[in-house]
Simulated assay, not measured.
Amino acid sequence: MQNLTTNITEILILLFILITFMQSGIDKAADWKGNTGWLKEHFSGTFLGGTVPLMVAIVMILEIITGFLAILGIIWLLAYDASAWALYACVLSCITLLMLLFGQRIAKDYAGAFTLTGYFIVCIFGVYILS
C-alpha cells in the first residue's frame, strides 16, 4: 500500500498511457483494412502516401509495446518501488506521439495535430517526474 500512495501520480499517468496506447494499437490490429484505407486517403497528397501500411504497422507495434511497458511500470512501481519501466513507457509514448504529430502536420491536419498536444503534455510530465 505504501508504494501505491507514494507513486500514485506515476501510476495514474501509466494507466492513462496504458488505456490510450493499448486501445489504439489493438484497434489498428483489429481494423487493419479500415485504418489503412482511411489513412491512405488522409496522406494521399503527401510524400507519405505510399508508405501508409508500413507507417501503421510501425505505430501499431510501438503503441502495443508502450502499453506493455506501462503494465510493467505499474507492476514494478507497486512491487519494487522501481521506476525504470515506467520511465521507458513514458519516453516511448512521447516518441510515438511525436511520430503521430509529424504525420498529422505533413497531412496538414492541424486540428488533429493539436489534439495530440494534450496527450503529449501528460506523457512528458510522466518523463519529467520519473527522471
Rank of each mutant, 00 (worst) to 15 (best):
Q23E: 03
S24A: 15
S24D: 06
G25Q: 09
I26V: 15
D27W: 03
A29C: 07
A29W: 12
A29I: 13
A30N: 10
A30R: 15
D31Y: 14
D31A: 11
D31M: 08
W32S: 03
K33T: 10
G34T: 08
T36C: 05
T36P: 02
G37Q: 11
W38G: 03
W38N: 05
W38A: 15
L39C: 02
L39F: 14
L39I: 05
E41M: 11
H42D: 08
F43R: 04
F43V: 06
S44P: 00
G45L: 06
T46V: 04
T46F: 07
F47A: 14
F47H: 13
L48A: 15
G49Y: 01
G50V: 06
G50R: 01
T51N: 12
V52R: 12
P53K: 10
M55T: 12
M55P: 00
V56I: 15
A57T: 04
A57Q: 11
I58M: 14
I58G: 09
I58D: 00
I58Q: 08
V59F: 11
V59D: 08
V59Y: 06
E63H: 09
E63G: 08
E63N: 09
I65M: 14
T66S: 10
T66D: 03
T66I: 04
T66Y: 11
G67P: 00
G67H: 08
A70H: 07
A70D: 10
I71E: 09
L72K: 11
G73H: 06
I74G: 07
I74R: 10
I75M: 07
W76C: 01
W76A: 06
L77K: 12
L77T: 05
L77E: 02
L77P: 11
L77G: 04
L77W: 11
L78T: 03
L78N: 02
A79K: 14
A79C: 03
D81R: 14
A82H: 12
S83F: 04
A84H: 03
A84P: 00
W85S: 13
W85Y: 15
A86N: 07
A86C: 09
L87K: 12
L87V: 01
L87E: 00
Y88Q: 05
V91Y: 10
V91R: 03
V91E: 03
S93H: 04
S93Y: 09
S93I: 01
I95Q: 02
I95D: 01
L97R: 02
L97C: 01
L97K: 00
L98C: 13
L98T: 01
M99A: 14
L100Y: 08
F102T: 11
F102C: 08
R105I: 15
R105K: 13
I106Y: 05
I106A: 11
I106T: 14
K108M: 08
K108L: 09
D109Q: 06
Y110M: 14
Y110E: 13
Y110T: 12
G112C: 09
G112A: 07
G112Q: 05
G112Y: 04
G112W: 07
A113P: 07
A113T: 08
F114P: 00
T115P: 01
L116K: 09
L116E: 07
L116P: 09
T117A: 15
T117G: 14
Y119G: 07
F120R: 00
F120I: 08
C123I: 00
C123S: 13
C123A: 15
I124N: 00
I124L: 12
F125T: 15
G126A: 07
V127M: 01
Y128R: 00
Y128S: 06
I129R: 06
I129T: 02
L130Q: 04
L130H: 05
L130G: 05
L130R: 02
L130P: 13
